[in-house]
Computed example of a mutant assay.
Amino acid sequence: MHAGWDWGQSYFYGTPDSGLTMQGHLFTTHPSGNPLLSGGSTGPEGSLCMLPLLLLMAFGMWLW
């Protein structure tokens, strides 16, 4: 799951992954708006919007 997330984020969407931008991505994105919501230069994984997703995944793994 982590590898798929990193690939999609870095090479498909072209967003930064932990602050690093990869070469050869399909799309190009530019963060806009509040960095707390967009992740800013860190990328989507640095946004507060990831907290509910991470909690949901943790709960799913706990149930499993």
Rank of each mutant, 00 (worst) to 15 (best):
Y11S: 14
Q9I: 08
S47G: 08
W7G: 03
C49I: 15
T29V: 07
L54E: 09
H2F: 05
G39W: 04
L26A: 12
E45N: 11
G33D: 02
S38E: 00
G24T: 00
F12Y: 14
S10D: 05
M1Y: 04
L63T: 10
T15W: 14
G33A: 04
T42F: 12
H25T: 15
G8R: 05
L54Y: 13
L51M: 08
L26N: 06
L55C: 12
W7K: 05
L36V: 10
M1L: 07
S41L: 09
T28Y: 03
F59C: 12
L51W: 07
M50P: 02
T29R: 10
G8F: 10
S41H: 07
S41V: 04
D17S: 05
L20D: 09
A3H: 13
M61R: 05
P35M: 02
M61D: 08
G40M: 00
P16A: 09
M1E: 09
H30A: 13
G40E: 00
L48Q: 01
G19P: 00
S47L: 08
W62S: 08
S32N: 10
W64L: 15
S10F: 00
H30R: 15
M50W: 09
P35D: 06
P44A: 10
L36E: 04
W7I: 13
M1D: 07
S38Y: 01
L37R: 07
S38F: 01
P44H: 05
T21N: 09
P16C: 03
L54S: 12
G14F: 03
F59E: 10
L55Y: 04
G8H: 02
Q23M: 02
L37T: 01
S47Y: 02
S41G: 06
F27V: 12
Q9M: 07
S41P: 03
M50K: 10
L20W: 06
H30S: 14
L48G: 04
L36P: 01
L36H: 07
T21Y: 06
P31M: 01
G8T: 10
H30Q: 15
Y11V: 06
A3R: 14
F59T: 05
M22G: 06
M22D: 07
W62F: 14
A58E: 01
Q9P: 07
T29K: 07
S18H: 10
L26K: 08
M22P: 11
G33E: 00
D6C: 09
M22A: 11
G33Y: 03
C49Q: 13
F12C: 08
L63S: 08
F59G: 15
G60E: 06
E45V: 01
M57Y: 12
N34F: 08
G4H: 03
P31S: 05
H2A: 05
T28S: 15
L48S: 05
Y13S: 12
L55T: 10
H2N: 09
W64I: 11
L51K: 07
L26F: 13
F27Q: 09
E45Y: 03
P16V: 02
S32V: 14
S18M: 11
G40A: 00
F27R: 08
G24V: 02
